[in-house]
């Protein structure tokens, strides 16, 4: 039993920094979202994140609705890193109408021309770390 508890504690201690970093990355994404809340965007209380190697893009499938306008925000806790998010339609065409990137933050806006499946491509473009934590949030109006 004691051995099990020790192992459990060790696992928790080992995992804590990683979780904290994803949390921090999410907090940066939410920070990027703040100015848009004032513009009437509802930020969904659900977030996506993890860790990635540099230039190892990840795809997230998303159902978007024509009639809404969306902003997607990505952040990382790594100061030297550069992260990005881009939006493609079901045929693979880049469809964001606006985007920006500033160090630890990135964002893209889309006004879907059709209701359907879209792909968010998130990527760590530059980082000093082997794996970089990232967090993404989105809002709509």
């Amino acid at each position: 039993m004691k051995r099990f508890i020790s192992l459990l504690l060790a696992a928790v201690i080992a995992a804590t920094p990683a979780l904290a970093s994803v949390d921090d990355a999410l907090s940066y994404a939410l920070e990027a979202a703040q100015p848009y809340v004032k513009e009437g965007f509802t930020v969904r209380e659900d977030y996506w994140g993890g860790d990635m190697a540099v230039k190892q893009a990840k795809a997230i499938t998303h159902q978007l609705f024509k009639g809404n306008e969306y902003w997607f925000w990505i952040g990382t806790d790594e100061k030297a890193a550069k992260v990005s998010v881009h939006i493609y339609d079901s045929e693979g065409n880049l469809c964001e109408v606006e985007g920006w990137q500033k160090g630890q933050f990135g964002a893209a806006r889309v006004i879907p021309k059709r209701t359907g499946t879209y792909y968010l491509i998130v990527e760590v473009e530059k980082s000093n770390r082997e794996r970089t934590h990232w967090g993404m949030a989105y809002g709509f109006r």
Partner: peptide, 10 residues
């Protein structure tokens, strides 16, 4: 942003 590809093969 640096230009992302205009089209990808989903």
């Amino acid at each position: 942003l640096a230009e992302p590809p205009a089209k990808i093969d989903v």
